[in-house]
């Protein structure tokens, strides 16, 4: 019985190992194809990696580039957005995303915002997830160890700055933990998508022949509010909402 379990575990590990190897192989193949200018082949290889259920930001970034070169703006932006989600701090990702966004047709005017709000929001969204996570964990450990120290080395309570140190660690920990949680919550609850078709009619209800509200063009990002069978209810940055068919867009 026990032996069988060990065998299964070993097999699973091996399987994931070979999967990762396969992903790497296809990723490298895709890069080679891209270098030689065969963007269609590059796309096929990269997409194969995704079909293996493997990902990292490099993959999405390169795939975005390959789509961009093949003039598929919608998919380029979709993949850049995916790369951005994984590595928001990466400059190359930001740059290419911006470059691609420049080529989109739709200009969604944002309601004017207070400058400090924009700054705050930006500041809130700029650190990557892993940075927030590790900072939170380190601060957490610092606080716990610092606090525990008083029980094992009672003399430390008399040391200058001990109290300050522990309280600072706690405050910082709570601060980072809350930002992390908010971001985590946002990511877990808010879904975004990108228009993939050249032109999409946004309708007032999830039925064919419904009133057309407005038209969106490829590359436009939106928030997915809900899904009803083959329809998505979307919301634009400026607050406009409507329904589009699910196949005309991609989930970030």
């Amino acid at each position: 019985m026990k032996k069988r379990l060990v065998f299964i575990a070993l097999f699973a590990m091996l399987a994931t190992q070979t999967l990762a190897d396969e992903a790497t192989t296809y990723f490298v193949k895709g890069n080679k194809a891209y270098e030689s200018g065969d963007f269609a082949a590059a796309i096929a290889n990269y997409e194969h990696v995704i079909s293996l259920n493997e990902e990292n930001w490099h993959l999405y970034f390169n795939l975005g580039n390959a789509y961009f070169r093949s003039n598929n703006l919608g998919r380029a932006i979709l993949n850049y957005e995916r790369a951005f989600k994984l590595a928001p701090e990466n400059e190359d990702v930001q740059f290419n995303l911006e470059m691609a966004a420049l080529q989109t047709t739709d200009r969604i005017p944002l309601p004017p915002k207070e400058a400090y709000l924009v700054l705050l929001e930006n500041w809130f969204n700029s650190p990557s997830f892993s940075f927030l996570l590790y900072t939170t964990l380190i601060l957490y450990a610092t606080f716990i160890l610092g606090w525990a120290l008083r029980y094992f080395v009672p003399a430390i309570t008399g040391a200058p700055f001990y109290q300050f140190f522990v309280v600072t660690a706690l405050v910082l920990f709570l601060f980072f933990a809350s930002i992390f949680s908010l971001r985590w919550y946002n990511q877990a609850t808010k879904q975004f998508g990108v228009i993939l078709e050249k032109e999409v009619n946004v309708t007032s209800s999830p039925t064919t022949g419904a009133t057309e509200l407005f038209i969106l063009h490829e590359g436009t990002k939106f928030q997915i509010k809900e899904q009803a069978s083959q329809w998505l209810r979307i919301r634009l940055r400026d607050g406009k909402t409507g329904w589009i068919t699910a196949e005309s867009a991609g989930r970030i």
């Binding site: 990762a20 992903a23 790497t24 990723f27 490298v28 890069n31 891209y34 990696v49 995704i50 259920n53 493997e54 990902e55 990292n56 930001w57 490099h58 993959l59 970034f61 390169n62 580039n65 390959a66 961009f68 190359d92 740059f95 290419n96 470059m99 691609a100 420049l102 997830f129 892993s130 996570l133 992390f180 985590w184």
Partner: peptide, 24 residues
Amino acid sequence: LLGKDIRYISLENETFEPVGEKFY
């Protein structure tokens, strides 16, 4: 008019993770 180009692909070979799986 913008003749600027996108940046080149990343050639870094970082380990892959299963889609959607996050440490946190």
